[in-house]
Nucleic acid binder design. Structure first.
Length: 281
DNA sequence: CTCCTGTCCTGCCGGC
DNA sequence: TGCCGGCAGGACAGGA
């Protein structure tokens, strides 16, 4: 499931393909994804050149020179496929959106579960877009730190795991990186968010940045090979410390003797949380 | 405000 | 072998 690092990798791959190229046509192969597709967008952005490809949290934004644009969310299973001019054009099941660009490039959005969405956006007032207007800081940006996180968790009685999943608290985190970050910070995921001390928030902010950077680096190294992986961009394999490792020994376990520490799985708000009870307190 | 629950959707996997 | 139920989860609506 694409979270901030995966979306950023997609952005980096899309930028050189989109930037400066003209959108010859935009084709919707169905009426809706998660939401109805913007039927007026194709005529508004066709034949104009792309001026920017950006990311905010898990959202991608693309704008054209005439000030039009759109926001794209990959949802759970969304994947971007880039086809170069000399590639054979293939249409796959769940290819919902196709951009045909100048010089024969194609960008295809494929999303089996259709949790993704694409909505029209004006460059002028993109910050007014609902999700953006209330979104928390970029975790890899300069305005995210321990003190900032501490402030944003104030008054929040829900478990810290749930709070970190809230895009209003901090942007771009999903279930996987929240579990991983809490592991590295040594924080028990069931603790109430407002009970986390300032000092622990320093550790959490550091852990969040570190986990995201590592994933970015791993994705970055596979980026140059994307053509060999069927041209598909969306998410990558990572080595997780706790996520999806129920019953296994946690990655940095130093526990010795007959009692081996192992990763536990609990359910919080209907979602799996993986953690190490020995290290996370 | 915050918090919680139900909803959307299909591929995959385990059980029989 | 094939069917079926359960599970996975990001964002959001709506109610407490």
């Amino acid at each position: 499931m694409p979270e901030l690092p995966e979306v950023e990798i997609v952005r980096r791959a899309l930028e050189p393909v989109f930037a400066g190229r003209r959108i010859e046509s935009l084709i919707f192969n169905r009426r809706n994804l998660r939401f109805d597709l913007p039927q007026t967008l194709p005529e508004r952005i066709s034949f104009s050149s792309v001026s920017s490809v950006s990311r905010r949290g898990k959202y991608l934004t693309v704008f054209t020179e005439n000030g039009c644009g759109f926001v794209l969310h990959l949802g759970m299973s969304g994947v971007i496929r880039i086809e170069a001019p000399d590639d054979k054009t293939v249409t796959k099941k769940h290819d919902h959106v196709e951009f045909h660009l100048s010089a024969g490039y194609r960008v295809v959005f494929n999303d089996p579960r259709r949790f993704g969405f694409l909505e029209e956006l004006d460059e002028k007032n993109w910050e007014d877009y609902g999700a953006f207007s209330s979104m928390g800081p970029e975790p890899l940006g300069n305005d995210f730190s321990g003190p900032v996180l501490f402030e944003r968790l104030r008054g929040r009685t829900s478990p810290v795991k749930n709070a970190l999943l809230d895009q209003k608290v901090v942007a771009g985190l999903g279930n996987i990186y929240v579990c991983e970050a809490l592991y590295y910070a040594g924080i028990d995921p069931v603790r109430s968010a407002c009970d986390i001390t300032a000092r622990e928030c320093d550790n959490m902010a550091r852990a969040i940045k570190s986990v995201l950077r590592k994933a970015l680096d791993a994705g970055g190294s596979s980026l140059r090979d994307y053509k060999h992986t069927d041209g598909q961009l969306g998410y990558f394999q990572h080595q997780f410390s706790v996520y999806d490792r129920e019953g296994e020994v946690c990655r940095d376990c130093t526990f010795e003797g007959p009692e081996v520490c192992c990763v536990k799985r609990i359910v919080q708000s209907g979602r799996s949380t993986f953690y190490c009870p020995e290290r996370q307190v």
